[in-house]
Design a binder for these strands. Structure first.
Lengths: 212, 212
DNA sequence: ACATTTGATGTACAAACGTATACTTATCGT
DNA sequence: ACGATAAGTATACGTTTGTACATCAAATGT
């Protein structure tokens, strides 16, 4: 019997695995990564102590799985949005829609932001992230840079290297994420999108209108 | 004898205090906040085990002091730059110079960025930060918003609410900080400043030239 | 129907944690 | 010069940590 099939046993096993992952995420969001201990996770997941070592060789292996779930959700959403627009839309529309995905649910949720920034903050997790997602992150960045180049050629903006500008836009998204995390009651996702759109309009005035 | 005087004893005491703070900062930068244990800190600072409890009531009190040192350095630099330019410069120059401070040493150093993001990532430290620096951070934000309003009136840009745009610029700075932290060998401070300047030029084309 | 295998449980344990406390050292005021 | 006192040291202690391991329960294949 190949793994991942829908036997009653393996189904419950995967359910428990999911419970552990989700318990870890909510725990990080509410109490921080220092609260992620084996005891607290299994307590929140409603399973027994030893179960965590049945599913994951170490605690860190579980955390990497958490990291995977966030990165893959973001990567897949970005890719799909890009591919859906790239054929039958203008580069301007594709760029806007693709980046707006990162500023909307289910990507931009305070709970998930909290987890992202825990990984950013730790050198070990940063290294793991870099090693695991180097290629796909680079791919996304170059995709954005390609769209910027298209807009530059159409509008003759002379923004310098497109890759630097792509990094700046990515940095802006990251910064807006952080703002939602650190000041959740002074800003919100709508404001984040408004701000992003405004900057995009400033950079590419011939492609975006200030009113919309 | 009032505290903080230059007696031989209190001088050495303050020196040890500084050693502990700096050891903590470098420890966070190199191994993450989870490596900040009493043993590791005193080992790195080259002092004895119990000294940390002589200087700080708890470990968290020491961390707050670390937080203070970073925030005050940044706040003072921003204030001074603003005040130095505000009287005898254009709003455009004041805005550029004031924000560039945050993208240059000694503010923008990888070591310090690592510490900033550790505080951002933890809910408890976020709360402490919010409570301690709410006013001065708001002051800085409104200062930026004021400059943006001045530029808007001069240039008739129609960027919407200045406070939202100010938050966006702050978010951009934060994002560029993060980029330096997560991809130190793919980008650098010069690129960060170039990117920021480019976006500022895009937003206020009548005030900034694309070439400089 | 039943032996087997797999998922789940609970306990055990060494290591590391933060801090309180008893003890030393050396500077300070007189 | 010398007790007083502040700074620094070293040890000890109760918790909590992650993981290993022996045990148990039940769905599975024949």
């Amino acid at each position: 019997m190949p793994p991942g099939t829908e036997s009653l046993r393996s189904l419950r096993k995967q359910d428990n695995r999911r419970k552990l992952i989700e318990a870890t995420i909510s725990l990080i969001a509410e109490e921080g990564i220092s609260a992620v201990t084996v005891s607290r996770v299994v307590e929140r997941a409603g399973v027994s102590r030893g179960l965590i070592n049945l599913h994951f060789e170490t605690k860190e292996a579980m955390m990497i799985e958490v990291m995977d779930s966030l990165n893959h959700e973001w990567r897949d959403s970005s890719r799909e949005t890009y591919q859906a627009h790239d054929s039958n839309s203008t580069p301007a529309q594709t760029l806007l829609e693709t980046m707006m995905i990162s500023l909307s649910p289910p990507i931009m949720e305070p709970t998930k932001m909290a987890v992202w920034y825990c990984f950013y903050a730790d050198p070990w997790y940063r290294k793991v992230y870099e090693e695991r997602y180097f290629e796909t992150d680079q791919e996304t960045l170059e995709m954005i840079a390609g769209l910027i180049e298209a807009l530059d050629q159409e509008g003759g903006y002379r923004h310098g290297e497109a890759l630097i500008m792509a990094r700046a836009l990515r940095a802006l998204v990251n910064g807006l994420w952080l703002e939602l995390l650190t000041e959740p009651d002074k800003t919100n996702m709508d404001e984040a999108r408004t701000a992003f759109k405004a900057i995009l309009t400033g950079l590419f005035p011939k492609h975006y209108s200030a009113t919309a």
